[in-house]
Design a protein around this nucleic acid. Structure first.
Length: 357
DNA sequence: TACCCGTGGTG
DNA sequence: TCACCAAGGGT
């Protein structure tokens, strides 16, 4: 049916990028790289991978790390459940599996944070198993080349793409084949304006031959964004301030932030000037400044945030939920990008001098 | 199944 | 400025 995989293979040998995780077949390192690369561009993930492997070179070191430390390594990368799940999984492997990474698709799939794609790519690269890995790149490539109109949003669509991917798997080197498919999607069969005139598959590509490259693949319905209003408090007390740890099922779980007042509506300057949040009930405070609004866009939320700078001269204690810290040690905590942006934009000397963004 | 979970590059 | 979307998975 196809010389499809062999064309991809030839293209890959010539065009593949030099990436740090391509120098190993250690399942631990392959796993780490694949978790980092979930919904993340290669260029964004490379330095995170290098630093992560430096600090946690094997299952044991990750299993024995503190979650706060793992999250600090993940700071700025997003989707922090990936880091929490990896940590849980490393502990599981260390405690219950004799520290040995599972060596087959179904056992890898059973790990927390590992789905069909990640299980397939790790099993194929690290253990040579013939498991087709269908990520966003492969999905797009297969949809265009074979003219598949199914969406990955449906179970039926997932089955169809997996069926086609299985069909074109070569007998040898499944790991290299899977990577070649993804690399081809990432560099040649790109989402927007792919260079079809320079494509070695164009002659037999359904979408190209029907002038319909732009209509493949069938897109996901987009999620609507919810707007939230965050008012953070930088409370200065000599060299001290307070942070809180986010808990519960919400964004940035287990990351740190300034004490937060969340509102369902936008609060005016005059309101913020006179209002005292619950965590400052018994504290005499001076209002120093209120930052401009920072817009922070997530995949599913829009957050409008401001940083309110207060000063208290007495030994104020906002409550045990809040963690008193030396202001300069903020850099030791894993914080969301939004907090970094607020620090950057608020122009509060005490913050700018210790936290270089 | 539908919704939740981040951030940054790109055009 | 803004829509799109990237080596997805959990619930």
């Amino acid at each position: 049916m196809h010389n499809f995989p062999s064309i991809i293979s030839v293209w890959y040998k010539k065009n593949q990028r030099d990436l740090p995780w391509r120098m190993t077949t250690d399942p631990y390192k392959i796993w780490v790289s694949e978790i980092i690369l979930q919904q993340t561009r290669v260029n964004q993930g490379i330095n995170y991978y290098i630093r992560f492997i430096e600090s946690f070179p094997d299952i044991k070191s990750l299993a024995q790390a503190k979650e706060d430390d793992v999250l600090k390594h993940w700071q700025g990368l997003g989707y922090y459940s990936r880091a929490r799940n990896m940590h849980v999984t490393a502990r599981h492997i260390w405690n219950n599996l004799n520290g040995i990474f599972p060596d087959n698709y179904s056992d890898i799939l059973a790990l927390k944070g590992v789905g069909p794609y990640t299980a397939a790519i790790v099993a194929s690269i690290a253990f040579g198993q013939s498991c087709p890995a269908v990520d966003g790149n492969v999905f797009r490539l297969l949809a265009r080349y074979f003219g598949i109109r199914e969406s990955l949003a449906t179970g039926k669509g997932k089955k169809e793409f997996l069926r086609v991917a299985t069909e074109i798997m070569p007998a040898k080197h499944p790991g290299i084949h899977n990577q070649a498919m993804m690399e081809f999607g990432a560099l040649q069969c790109t989402p927007k304006s792919p260079n079809c005139l320079a494509c070695p598959l164009s002659l037999s590509c359904y979408a190209f031959n029907h002038q319909s490259v732009e209509s493949f693949p069938v897109k996901f319905p987009k999620v609507k964004q919810r707007t939230r209003y965050f008012y953070y408090y930088f409370i200065k007390s000599k060299n001290r301030t307070w942070l809180e740890k986010r808990t519960g099922n919400d964004i940035w779980k287990n990351l740190f932030q300034f004490p937060l007042l969340e509102s369902t509506t936008e609060l005016t300057d005059s309101y913020l000037t006179s209002f005292k949040p619950h965590f400052l009930e018994d504290c005499p405070v001076n209002l120093k400044s209120i930052s401009p609004t920072i817009k922070h866009v997530l995949s599913h939320q829009i957050i409008l945030a401001r940083l309110i700078h207060l000063e208290t001269e007495t030994s104020c204690q906002p409550g045990s939920h809040y963690i008193p810290i030396e202001t300069h040690s903020i850099q030791l905590f894993a914080i969301p990008r939004l907090i970094e942006k607020l620090i950057e934009k608020a122009r509060i000397p005490e913050l700018n001098s210790i936290y270089k963004v």
